[in-house]
Amino acid sequence: MNSAFDLSCECVGVMPTIEVQDYISTMPVRDDLPDSRAPVSQVGTAEQMNREIIIPDEMREIVSRAGYAPAVKVGETIYVVGQVGRTLDLEVIEDPREQFRAMWENLRIVLNAAGCTFDDVVEMTSYHVAMSKHMNVFREAKNDVFPKGTYAWTRIGVSELAHPGLLAEVKCVAVKRQH
């Protein structure tokens, strides 16, 4: 057994097993949370647990239809659900450039309702149907409104989104800056 893999396999075979119930019983109990047995490091402070649901007036219809919040604020961090390019009547916009512009406008509306701007975004994930076909137009629309080089961005190609005709969806995390 010369390889590290073989050695690690031997070690795993001799490690003692521990019952989950025994492990849980040794965790510190949080007195400020009812019946909690979660480790303190995983629970967070009371301030971190306070959540504010962000629903811009313009998006009340989608909330009533779909049942999810456009964003949730925890402390100074805002988690924005995926935004797409639709009209206020929830109709998909056919023209790719206009669809992407509407998507960024919808994101701006949610961030604004949370007291943030595009400058507060620290992480963004975008999902694309026919990514290579539309990426140049997508970037042009993004660059018209979004600051360059101030956030982490992951782009993912997908076969479809929630409604036929949608070409992209973007979700993000923003941290409200102290002004």
Results as ranks from 00 to 15, higher is better:
D119H: 11
A113L: 05
S126D: 12
V122M: 10
I93R: 12
H128Q: 14
M103W: 02
M135I: 15
E98V: 01
Q83W: 00
D95L: 02
R97D: 08
N106H: 13
H128T: 09
V84K: 01
M103I: 03
V84W: 02
R101M: 06
S126P: 10
R97G: 14
V110K: 06
G85F: 04
R101F: 05
N136H: 09
N136M: 12
L107C: 06
V84T: 12
G85I: 00
A114N: 04
F100A: 09
A113Y: 02
H128V: 01
H128N: 06
V92D: 05
I109A: 09
D120F: 01
H134Q: 08
A130Y: 13
S126A: 15
A130T: 07
G85S: 13
P96E: 14
T125A: 15
V92L: 01
Q83G: 00
D95P: 00
R101E: 03
M135L: 11
L88G: 14
K133I: 08
H134K: 14
N112S: 15
N112G: 08
M135Q: 10
E98Q: 09
F118L: 04
E94K: 15
W104D: 00
F100M: 12
E123W: 05
H134V: 03
L88I: 05
D120R: 01
I93V: 08
V129T: 10
M103D: 01
H134T: 03
D95S: 15
E91T: 09
Q99S: 08
A113K: 07
M103Y: 05
H134G: 01
V129Y: 14
I109C: 05
V121T: 03
M131P: 08
E123Q: 06
R108C: 02
R101L: 10
D119L: 04
V129D: 12
D89I: 03
T117Q: 00
G115L: 10
D120L: 03
Y127E: 15
G82H: 11
T87L: 08
E105C: 02
R108A: 12
T125G: 00
W104H: 09
R108K: 11
V92R: 04
E91D: 11
C116F: 06
E98W: 02
Y127N: 07
G115K: 07
E94N: 07
V122L: 10
E105T: 10
G115Q: 08
M124H: 04
S126C: 15
L88M: 12
M135W: 07
V92E: 06
I93F: 13
F100P: 02
I109F: 07
H134F: 15
V84D: 05
V121M: 03
M131Q: 11
I109R: 13
T125E: 13
L88H: 11
E94I: 08
K133V: 11
